[in-house]
Design a protein around this nucleic acid. Structure first.
Lengths: 113, 113
DNA sequence: GACTCCGCTATTATTTCCGTAGCATAAATT
DNA sequence: AATTTATGCTACGGAAATAATAGCGGAGTC
């Protein structure tokens, strides 16, 4: 699967707008989750696998490659994976989602049990 | 495919934490994009289809059903689809992504042309 | 030199998604 | 009243992405 990059046409968009490349990248399975799980620091690929409910290594490695190519995470020898400054910035950008998820849960419970 | 709801175990998570349900929901193809395209108001399902680069109606309808069940979008007769107040809140939560995408593009260009 | 953990890959089955065509309904047009 | 147009939505077959399991080569450790 092609690695999404800004200013390049991506899966589902012919415009090449950066936001589209980003939505393609983040819309792939486990991509958001991986970034989320790296919020507190380094994780080896196996720790990451555990953290993501034993995701299959095939997809995990795909996502890791893509996220690395996108410059959002980095791999350091004997440490594992971590967010780059850019990746950290991205995480901060959707950190409000966590708070939202809680409100969402509250509202969904109120409505439908 | 099961519709993700908070406090319910979802695809890829046995914990039922709301954030996991949300990441599952938003991690599906076109989910983020649909919310994004609804940022300026009502769109009929066909307008939405066009806006999403002619996404196949099969998947679009799946995402629309899930997003409706999650209470993030609503369908009104003769108007089409629009974000609910909750959905609007979600959009606002990841609106910073747009700004991030632009910085990401700038940085990627600087690094690799 | 056997252990352990690392990042990563091969293979096969399953799930999800795509592309095309088309349905039933309802409003507008002629 | 008949036709046209647009709505939300579905069926079906093929393509693509993901899953599950097993295992590789390398690097440190004891």
């Amino acid at each position: 699967m092609v690695e999404p990059r800004p200013r390049r046409t991506v899966r589902g968009s012919r415009t090449g707008r950066p936001i589209m490349a980003l939505l393609d990248l983040l819309g792939r399975r486990w991509a958001l989750r991986v970034i989320w799980e790296l919020r507190d620091g380094w994780l080896t690929s196996r720790q990451l696998r555990e953290a993501c409910d034993d995701v299959s290594p095939t997809v995990l490695q795909s996502r890791l490659s893509e996220l690395r190519a996108a410059g959002l995470i980095a791999l350091e020898h004997r440490h594992g994976y971590a967010l780059t400054p850019l990746g950290r910035e991205l995480l901060d950008s959707f950190l409000p989602l966590h708070g939202f998820a809680e409100r969402w849960a509250a509202e969904a419970l109120a409505e439908q049990g």
